[in-house]
Design a protein around this nucleic acid. Structure first.
Length: 396
DNA sequence: AATACGTGGGC
DNA sequence: TGCCCAAGTAT
C-alpha cells in the first residue's frame, strides 16, 4: 500500500492509498460506468466554459432539479458573457429570483465584467486565475478547469467528500475547512490524466445517485470493490459531519400599506447582507418597536388577537421612519413563518391604508399587477400569497 | 476558523 | 413536524 502522507500538507492525517494499478482499475470502472450512466444535463451538452461556469454557480448548495429551469432561462436571457456583463444588476437578480443565496447573482455579474476587463472576454483556464473571479472558490475553480479546460484539478464538493470519505473510511469532519485539503489531495491521486473532468463528474454523479447521504446503495456501485466502507459495512458512519446549530428565531411585523390609488408600498433591502437588493413589504423587527414592559409583543405572536395597542407603536414607527400615516384597515393578522438556513422569521402581517403621496427612501408604490417586475425573495411571495387568500376570502 | 448566506425536497 | 440535506463562497 502506498500512503498519502498528508503531513506534507501541514496536516498529520495519513491515508492508505491504492497502488498505481489499482488506481487505473478504479478509473476504468468509474469512467465506464459514467459513460453509460451519466445524467443528461443541459450544461453537459458541450464544454462551453460560460455554460459550465453559470451552472456551477447555480449548483452551489442547490439541487440539480431546482437549477435546471433557472439555467435554461438564464441562458436565454444572457446567452453570452457579454450579454451578462452588459445587463443591469436588477435584471440579473430577477433571473435569480427564488433560487436563493442572492450574492451569487451579484458576484456573477461582477465576475463577467472582470473576465471582459482582464481576460478579453474569455474565461481563464487555470485553477488559480479562476479563483480571482468573484464567487469562484476552490470547488468551482476545479470544476471549470477540469470540465471545460481538461486540466487535472480536483473538483471537491459535498458529493465528492462523501464518496471519498467512504472509499477510504476517512473520519474527518467535512464541514471543517482545514479538512478540505485532505480530500483534495486524495482526489488528485485518483484523477485520470486524460479525463480529469469526467473523473470529477463521475465521482459527483456516483455520490448523487448511488453513494447518497441516505438510502445509500453501495452494493450497486461500479467501484464497490474499492469501497472500504462497503467491504467493512461501515458506510453509514461516513462522512463525519458536524451538526448544524439551531436557527435563531426573529419576530417581525410585515406592514402592508395600500395608498388611495390602490398601490402597495414596497421596499428595497440594503445592498448587502440577507436578501440584499430584494424587494419586500416594509418589515419591522420587534426590537425596532418600543417594547412594552409586560412583553406584550412576544405574547402577540402566540395569540394574534387584539393588536390595538401594538398598532399604535407600529403607526408611530411608520410615521417616524417612512413619513407616512397609516390606518388599520381591519384586524385580520396573518401569521407567516419563513425558515432560512440560519434563522427563522416569525412574521405577523397587517393590512393598512394611507392617504400619503410621498415615496419613502428605498421604496416604491406599485400596483399588484406590476409585482412581476420586482425581484422578490420567497418570503415576500409567501406574504403576497397570504394577502391574496385573504382578499379572496373577504369577497364572500 | 467560524459564521452568514436561501430555498425546496425527502422522510 | 422537524430535521437533514444539496455541485460553496466571502469575510
Amino acid at each position: 500500500m502506498k500512503i498519502i502522507d498528508i503531513k506534507t500538507l501541514k496536516n498529520e492525517y495519513k491515508i492508505d492509498i491504492w497502488t498505481s494499478t489499482q488506481i487505473r482499475q478504479f478509473q476504468k470502472q468509474l469512467l465506464d460506468w459514467y459513460d453509460e450512466h451519466q445524467r443528461l444535463l443541459p450544461w453537459r451538452e458541450n464544454k462551453d466554459p460560460y455554460r459550465i461556469w453559470i451552472s456551477e454557480i447555480m449548483l452551489q448548495q442547490t439541487q440539480v432539479d431546482t437549477v435546471i429551469p433557472y439555467f435554461n432561462h438564464f441562458m436565454e436571457k444572457f446567452p453570452s458573457i457579454y450579454k451578462l456583463a452588459e445587463a443591469s444588476k436588477e435584471e440579473v437578480l430577477k433571473a435569480w429570483e427564488g433560487l436563493g443565496y442572492y450574492s451569487r447573482a451579484a458576484n456573477l455579474h461582477i465576475a463577467a465584467q472582470q473576465v471582459i476587463e482582464n481576460y478579453e472576454g474569455k474565461m481563464p483556464n487555470s485553477f488559480d486565475e479562476l479563483q480571482t473571479l468573484k464567487g469562484i472558490g476552490p470547488y468551482t475553480a476545479g470544476a471549470i478547469a477540469s470540465m471545460a479546460f481538461n486540466q487535472k484539478v480536483p473538483a471537491v464538493d459535498g458529493n465528492v467528500m462523501r464518496v471519498v470519505s467512504r472509499l477510504f473510511e476517512i473520519d474527518l469532519d467535512i464541514k471543517r475547512p482545514k479538512n478540505f485539503k485532505v480530500f483534495f489531495s486524495v482526489v488528485y491521486h485518483l484523477l485520470d490524466e486524460k479525463r480529469p473532468g469526467d473523473c470529477n463528474q463521475a465521482l459527483m454523479d456516483l455520490g448523487a445517485t448511488i453513494m447518497t447521504p441516505k438510502a445509500s446503495r453501495p452494493d450497486l456501485s461500479p467501484v464497490k470493490a474499492f469501497d472500504a466502507s462497503y467491504l467493512n459495512e461501515s458506510w453509514e458512519h461516513y462522512p463525519v459531519v458536524a451538526k448544524a446549530k439551531a436557527p435563531k428565531l426573529i419576530r417581525k411585523w410585515a406592514i402592508v400599506v395600500k395608498n388611495e390609488d390602490g398601490q402597495y408600498l414596497l421596499e428595497k433591502r440594503p445592498d448587502n447582507g440577507l436578501l440584499a437588493n430584494m424587494w419586500t413589504f416594509p418589515l419591522v423587527a420587534e426590537n425596532d418597536l418600543q417594547k412594552s414592559k409586560d412583553g406584550k409583543i412576544a405574547k402577540m405572536f402566540n395569540d394574534t388577537l387584539d393588536i390595538t395597542d401594538e398598532f399604535e407603536k407600529i403607526k408611530a414607527f411608520m410615521l417616524e421612519n417612512y413619513s407616512i400615516n397609516i390606518h388599520l384597515e381591519n384586524d385580520i393578522v396573518h401569521h407567516v413563518r419563513h425558515i432560512f438556513s440560519h434563522l427563522v422569521w416569525e412574521i405577523l402581517m397587517i393590512n393598512t391604508t394611507t392617504n400619503a403621496t410621498n415615496t419613502p427612501q428605498n421604496c416604491e408604490w406599485t400596483a399588484a399587477d406590476k409585482f412581476g417586475q420586482y425581484a422578490f425573495p420567497a418570503v415576500q411571495t409567501k406574504l403576497i400569497q397570504a394577502l391574496t387568500e385573504h382578499i379572496q376570502t373577504t369577497l364572500f
